[in-house]
Design a binder for these strands. Structure first.
Lengths: 148, 148
DNA sequence: CGTGAAATCGTCATGAA
DNA sequence: TTCATGACGATTTCACG
């Protein structure tokens, strides 16, 4: 993980469809060398996968909210994780240190669906309360920058 | 945006490196037809870009935190957005309806760096307070699913 | 890490349903 | 319109220097 690898990651985050020749030129390497670097980054798990960034609003996920989930038991466990993952509206779930046990991110098409999702969160064993933070506007959501 | 497009999006989110032939087979289409569909999804902005998913811990961003930012003025404005975007540790910024004006996601290498980032958030004009939620463990962070 | 060759894939034209 | 087929050009990929 040197500076060249960082530049490769930045380039790939911006556009993973570009050819290795262009990628190599951007970081001062040949196509073959760039390819080999990227292959190793994948192997090491630094690059987890290549994916597409989908506009949430275009697929019926235009409403976003963060939900602080309070629970009466320790929830850093496997069954809770599975219960959350079973809800398609839940796109993130974190165990936190703070005013609640968990923080989950929910994405739905409408506020009615958001309400339905909250009901389903309540139904999970051990959940005693929720506090919902509705997102009005997202300034930006960007990938982690390796540099700086 | 029919069912086939949804399946294409799901496939591409899982692995955007696969060949159009494989992609087409997965959704019951020829390579050429799959290619044309994906081209249109890009054109329409449903697919914003193709990127790589980078392991945060591998690039010195292993510590995550959500910060509720309170302000004494309306902050849904351009200068605030720019000030936040100038901080490389800030990976997300949202205007919210809830107990604060903004919710920002911060990623750093260590808790010391997190502290430094909080100091810089305080320094932004109009910010009167912050409440920090440290992430202890992330169950999952997954892309929006077009289906369901 | 660069170069070159071989295999594979993306891309586009044509034609059909 | 939308899709399958086939051919061409570009790219990935690997062996060698």
């Amino acid at each position: 993980m040197d500076d060249v690898d960082c530049m490769l990651l930045t380039e790939l985050q911006q556009d993973a469809t570009q050819a290795y020749a262009a990628l190599g030129k951007a970081v001062g390497l040949s196509a073959g060398a760039a390819h080999e670097r990227v292959r190793k980054l994948r192997e090491q798990g630094v690059i987890r996968r290549t994916t597409v960034d989908v506009d949430p609003a275009a697929v019926g996920r235009g409403v976003a909210a963060y939900v602080l989930v309070e629970a009466n038991a320790w929830m850093g466990d496997e069954p809770v994780c599975a219960a959350l993952e079973a809800l398609p509206e839940v796109v993130e779930a974190h165990v936190i240190a703070g005013p609640a046990s968990l923080l989950v991110k929910v994405r739905t098409a409408t506020t009615e669906e958001l309400q339905a999702a909250l009901r389903r969160l309540f139904a999970i064993d051990g959940v005693t309360g929720t506090q919902t933070i509705v997102v009005l506007e997202s300034f930006f959501e960007r990938p982690v920058n390796a540099g700086a």
